[in-house]
Design a protein around this nucleic acid. Structure first.
Lengths: 212, 212
DNA sequence: CTATTTATGTACCTTACGGTATAGTACAGA
DNA sequence: TCTGTACTATACCGTAAGGTACATAAATAG
């Protein structure tokens, strides 16, 4: 993605960009987030970023590449936040942090919730676009693995029963995660999302405490 | 929805429709299902149904009303199928039937899966459209209630422990349902979806058997 | 200073979009 | 048979879509 500009940190050749790519990508992401992939026009993105269309096309290629860049941006953000949450030593504090962060993200800033960017903007396209479909699968697999690892770590640390099944525990949290995303976008209140997450954590507690 | 044509079953006045509304709505639903709401054009719908656009507009109003009619059509179908599954006396046969039907629907007929019509075509619009958002909430609530009732029935029938929490059990199945939908649209294989459903049913079994 | 390179801003192209005007057609009722 | 009514078919409207040509501006390399 980045140019192999290995040793010489000298400025690139032509006229420099007047914008920061990451900031622009954040705006792009937020716009796609609200209106979906097909529901967002390049003119909307131009307005949201303050860039004229030729700049967007010059920097990112076309609409789909721009979208995929925004998706990457989002997924990297999620992975980083979850990695941070999973680094908390206590398992249940980890899960609490994970769900609290998700709910914050999914509620959005405005009245209506926005849910998970990937679930509600990539998934509609996934049935017809193999690139997007693959990106979604990779991301789902990545979340699965991260959660399984987190539970394995908890077992090793003796925080939960050694007979607990990390895959079953991960499934509960993952399914809960996607459900909360859907509920958020459908307009459920924050308290309802929180209650749903708490119920999942409680279930994990019950599953992890009692031997199979 | 249907005209209050109570007593007189005489034919309506003008030229009769050349098509069956439900059949047309099925085609419309399938087209929206693949391409999403914003990603589907009226011309596509016209081609998929074999009707010219003025017929579609005459019968349904505009694109959004047509979509909402297709959504109603889909949700009524789901409710009917689930009611049938939940009528099976044995709880776990019920859950088996429910998940098997879901997986069938979510896999679709073609190579790429399609997932749940509501999750992947209504949800993207839900963040900006209160009508659609409300329809989604009502449908989610309806599924919640149906599952809770099914578990209550199982408790009354003595199939599961009286101390089991119907809401916690319903949450597991609902979350699993939505997760399977997402995985299907992302292109996971049928066997993976089945394994996921089996894992949820197994968890329900464990939760329902052992007192809290 | 000049040439080259890359980004910006305006204006525009082609196509496809949601939706409709209009003319013709098939039925019921009188 | 005539009339009113509701549907069909063709052709079209205005607009908005994704994307780009072109002239200009800002940087580096020589």
């Amino acid at each position: 993605m980045v140019q192999k500009n290995s040793s010489s940190p000298s400025a690139p050749r032509g006229r420099p960009r007047s914008f920061d790519t990451d900031e622009v990508l954040d705006r792009v992401r937020d716009t796609f987030w609200r209106y979906g992939y097909a529901g967002t026009s390049m003119d909307q993105l131009s307005a949201a970023t303050g860039l004229h269309k030729p700049s967007l096309y010059g920097a990112f290629g076309d609409k789909k590449k721009l979208y995929l860049a925004a998706l990457d941006n989002y997924l990297a953000d999620v992975r980083a936040e979850f990695a941070e949450a999973f680094a908390i030593p206590d398992l249940f504090e980890s899960l609490e942090a994970m769900t609290e962060w998700s709910i914050d993200k999914f509620m959005g800033k405005d009245e209506l919730g926005t849910g998970c960017f990937m679930m509600h903007t990539a998934m509609p396209e996934a049935s017809e676009d193999p690139d997007i479909s693959r990106a979604v699968r990779e991301s789902m697999d990545s979340l699965d693995r991260a959660l399984v690892r987190r539970f394995e770590k908890a077992i090793e640390a003796g925080q939960v029963s050694a007979e607990a099944d990390p895959h079953a525990l991960a499934m509960v949290m993952v399914a809960n995660h996607y459900e909360i995303s859907g509920r958020a976008r459908a307009g459920y209140a924050r308290a309802e999302l929180r209650a749903l997450a708490d119920r999942a954590i409680k279930l994990v507690k019950a599953m992890a405490g009692a031997p199979a």
